[in-house]
Structure formats: C-alpha cells, structure tokens
C-alpha cells in the first residue's frame, strides 16, 4: 500500500489499532431473538473465524461491526459494540465514516454493473476525490494487492460483470481495500466460488492480515483451520466456544463444539 495520503480523506485521529469488542449484545428481529447475549473480544491484526450451522447468528453478529443490520426490517439491538473502545452504536457516530473504516466483503460477489475501474474507484469517488492521477494509482495499487492487476490491466473499462466469479470476488476485495479500511469483515467470501478461486482468496487473506484486522464467517471448517488465528463457534444465537484455532479444532472444551467440528450435526 502506498503511503501517499490525501489529507481530505484520512482522518488522522483514527488510530491504527483495531480491536473489536462486544458487550452483552442481543439482537432481535421483531420478536425473534437472533443473538442471545454475547460478550467477546477480537484481537487486532489477526484473522478471526466465525463458524456454526446455518441460522446460528454468526452472519448477523458479523454485520453488527459495520452496522449493516441497520437496514434490516424489524432489527433491534441491546448492548454495546466497541471498536478501539468507542461504542459504534452511539447516536453521534457517523455510519458512513464507520463503514469506510470497517470494510466488508459479501457472500456472493456483488460488483456494481459498471466498469472494473469504476468499481474500485467508487469508494474514493463518493468521498469527493476527483484527482484522476490519484484515483488511477489507487485503483492499480488495490488491484495489485488482490493479484488481479495483471489479469485486467488492459480491460479496466470493461464491465465488471464480464469477469469470472473468482475474479469478481477479488475485485470486490480490491474495492474494499481502496478506501483503506483498518478492519475487514468477510461474510462467507468463498462459498460461491470454485476451489481454485477459493485458494487464491485464502492466500490473499493470509497476506492481508499483516495490515488489517480480519473477521471471516465461514461454513467451511477446513478453511477456518487453514487461515484463522482464532475461531469462534456459534450455536442458536450464542457464542459456545472461542479460542485459538489450533486449540479449538484439536481439543475443544465443549461437547457441542466437538459434535459440530467432527460433523455430527450442522
């Protein structure tokens, strides 16, 4: 990443320590209690994986950290989500600013129906950056980080929809990196991809953790084992077990965790 920083965009007061914390968090969708009281601390500059069967609340929990649930009908939350000690659900928090700092990659690749260039530049443009040279450098830089540059450098003006699924997902990651977040949330980023593309993205995650705090939701336990430093197991809206990945996958404390990772249910 270049250290050329535009004064307009980067708020210097944001410290580059990126610890996440949940305190007594409960989430409701109308009357349904999706998260039943979770306390958790997520370490900076590590990869933390959330695992658990479908409907266990892991995605809902992930989306609390950039307030993406705000748009879900009937959503209600209790408790606090803290980033570097700041409660992000306080009234005066600027949600757009928060999301710039906490990037997100989604389950299905969701490029905008625009050119490759426009996709990566989007996040910068909406902040009002018009400097063409800077945008260009930033787009190239972001695409290089996800190892997509060599594949698309001659087709930057082509529609992003023409890329393969794996390329689209790497584009979406590049798009996220372009706004220089400090934390990246990934919601099953490889579940819609073939094994080869999956391998590329996993490699990428491994490199990214040098600079970013990464939280990844995954269905795939091998994946969690391969790429994460810490793993959290969720079940029916509760955090059952949370430990170093090595420990959790080889010697879990709880019976439920063991049942799940050995494939007895899920």
């Amino acid at each position: 990443m270049t250290q050329q920083v535009n004064d307009n965009i980067v708020d210097k007061s944001i410290k580059r320590v990126h610890k996440l914390e949940a305190k007594g968090v409960k989430v409701f969708y109308d009357d349904f209690e999706a998260i039943k009281g979770i306390d958790m601390q997520i370490k900076a500059n590590k990869v933390t994986a959330f695992i658990g069967p479908s409907g266990c609340g892991k995605s809902t929990f992930l989306r609390l950290f950039n307030r993406m649930n705000d748009y879900v009908d009937g959503f209600r939350m209790e408790g606090e989500i803290l980033i570097d000690g700041e409660n992000i659900y306080k009234k005066k928090v600027n949600v757009e600013q928060l999301r710039k700092q906490v990037g997100m990659v989604f389950q299905k690749p969701n490029p905008f129906p625009k050119s490759i260039y426009e996709n990566v530049a989007y996040g910068l443009k909406i902040q009002g950056i018009k400097d063409k040279k800077y945008l260009k450098e930033k787009v190239e830089d972001s695409l290089k980080q996800v190892a997509l540059w060599d594949e698309v450098k001659d087709d930057l003006n082509k529609s992003a929809m023409a890329l393969s699924g794996g390329q689209q997902q790497r584009l979406c990651i590049a798009r996220t990196l372009a706004v220089e977040p400090s934390i990246i949330l990934m919601d099953e980023p490889t579940s819609a991809l073939d094994p080869l593309s999956t391998a590329k993205i996993e490699e990428l995650i491994y490199e990214l953790k040098q600079k970013y705090t990464i939280v990844i939701v995954t269905h795939n336990m091998q994946q969690a084992g391969r790429i994460s430093d810490y793993t959290a197991f969720f079940y029916l809206g509760e955090l059952i077990e949370y430990d170093k990945s090595k420990k959790l996958f080889t010697n879990p404390e709880k019976q439920q965790t063991e049942n799940y990772i050995t494939g007895r249910f899920g």
Binding site: Y71, E96, L98, N110, Y122, G123, I126
Partner: peptide
C-alpha cells in the same frame, strides 16, 4: 438485487449516493 445495495453501503455510501450512483 439487495447485494448491490449492501455493497455500496458497506463502503460508506449515504443513501443518496447509493441511489444515484448505483
């Protein structure tokens, strides 16, 4: 598709930016 909406919000778009740009 909602995924486009989420992508734009996820990058810090306001509703207005999301509406007119995406």
């Amino acid at each position: 598709p909602n995924s486009l909406r989420e992508a734009a919000y996820g990058m810090g778009s306001t509703k207005l930016q999301n509406s007119f740009r995406v």
